[in-house]
Amino acid sequence: MCFAVLVFDGYDLIVYGAVLPELLRYGPWDLQPAEAGTIGSYAAAGMLVGALGAGFLTGRLGHRRILLTGVAWFSLAMTGCALATSAGMFGLFRVAGGIGLGAVMPTAVALTAAYSDPRHRGRSNALMFSGYSVGGILAASLAVVLLPELGFRALFWAGAAPLLFLPVLARHLPPDDIPRTRPVPRGAGPFRELLRPPHRGPALLFAVVSFFGLLLVYGLNAWLPQIMKSAGHPLTDSLLFLVVLNGGAIAGTLVFAPLGDRAGMRRVVALAFGLAAVSILLLSVARAVPVLHALTAVAGFGTVGTQVLVNGHVAAHFPAPVRTAALSWSLGVGRLGAIAGPAFGGLIASSGAAAEWNFYAFAVPAALAAGLVALLPAGGSTP
């Protein structure tokens, strides 16, 4: 069920990148690249509020209510995007949808971690979180089919479909909160406990690494089709790169997550960020389409897939009483990177720089993240 929720989550986030070329060229609001990048950041801004809010409210409302409310919230916001009559209204509904999306993601990760065998927690998290990339593939694939004939609004109407799945979630999600193996000290809420030793240092580091990871995830998913289109590829082929990016994220994550359980997640995360930096850099010089697809797939694993591993590392490192707060903190503060990513891509696109600078710009944060991972805790699962 959490996998299905992440499919919806991924679709709603990545669909903006799939429709962006049409919004820039044929859209009704005469968007410019810088403005389009700013609108692309709106959902991530809402997710910052939603992720931090989930951390505060989960103890009162429980994971079940947070998940159900979040799914209903972002699905209704997608109908608002489909009906928007101005860029301002469209952006407002992207912010609103982001609040629901932000609340859902750490809740789904925490539920999956809580009900997984601790020895295979990284693998379980990877399987669940691959739903995000499946949603991205679905968004790009539907764009190929629907965009030429029905326009961008049809893609947002499709994003309201999770409302039909709500009765299934309501029936089958466990009613009890996730089990606790160690109580939080009296008088200390989860966030207060998280920001005390020994949790404080790791929490700050995970947040910084998530900043770079989410900058890459949201920046590339928002701008890759437009970057490839500006490099001379037809629109359909440009959308295919988005499919390959998220396909690579799924394949790489499912291969590397079990390795992280055995060899240590820190080593695997550092390797993945390094691969992302190299592959994105090579995209600036490669010309043959098969080579471009291969590099894009590696970049997908090294960016989208690596953030999945980082989330799994957070879930494995922190104990159950502060786990949701840790995930909300890491993803919430990391959302600043998600906010920056689309705007960063828009800034590069509107700068008039040569096409290869689009790739240089995203290779740098990947390299920085690879270096910062060395400071993360190396330990395995914490009960």
Rank of each mutant, 00 (worst) to 15 (best):
G334P: 03
L169Y: 06
A263Y: 15
P183A: 14
E356F: 10
A188D: 13
R196G: 12
F165G: 11
P118W: 07
H317I: 00
A108H: 04
V310D: 03
A338D: 02
V304A: 15
W329S: 11
L111G: 03
V269L: 12
G334T: 01
G312D: 06
E193D: 09
R200A: 15
A361L: 07
W223P: 06
V268P: 03
G98M: 11
G50L: 07
L155C: 11
G70H: 00
L169K: 09
L215W: 05
S210V: 07
E193G: 01
M89Y: 01
A84Q: 12
P190F: 03
S130P: 02
L194K: 09
A72C: 15
R192W: 10
L195K: 09
L216R: 01
G252W: 05
P290C: 13
A355S: 13
E149C: 00
P167Y: 08
P167F: 05
A4S: 15
A374I: 03
Q307H: 13
R171G: 05
T303D: 07
F301I: 10
A84N: 12
A170S: 14
P167R: 10
W157E: 09
G46P: 02
V109R: 01
L336R: 00
G187F: 10
I66K: 02
S41P: 02
V71F: 10
T69K: 01
L309C: 00
R182N: 05
V333C: 10
G352T: 06
G248H: 04
V19F: 06
I178H: 00
M89G: 08
G332E: 09
T107Y: 01
G371S: 08
P321R: 04
A277K: 00
V322E: 10
R65K: 12
G98T: 07
F273W: 08
A361G: 05
V71N: 06
L242S: 15
R25A: 15
W329C: 11
M105F: 06
D177L: 03
P258D: 13
D261W: 11
S381T: 14
A203P: 07
T296W: 06
S210E: 04
A320M: 09
L204D: 09
P202M: 06
G260F: 04
S124G: 11
V7H: 05
D9I: 08
A158C: 15
S351D: 10
L375P: 04
L166R: 11
L281I: 08
A139M: 10
A353L: 14
A207L: 09
L76M: 15
A361Y: 02
N311L: 04
H199C: 13
G312T: 01
G46I: 03
V310H: 00
V71C: 06
S350Q: 13
L169E: 08
S133F: 09
V7M: 10
G17M: 08
I39D: 02
L6S: 06
G122H: 05
S124W: 01
V95H: 01
G379I: 05
D237S: 13
L283E: 10
T38A: 14
A34D: 14
G187L: 12
L67T: 09
R119T: 13
L194G: 12
A276E: 11
L24M: 09
S130R: 05
G264T: 12
D237C: 00
L295N: 05
I348F: 00
A366Q: 02
A82R: 06
P183I: 07
S75R: 03
I137S: 10
L204T: 10
T181Q: 12
G59L: 03
P383K: 00
E35D: 13
A113G: 02
R323Y: 01
A370V: 08
R119G: 11
L142F: 13
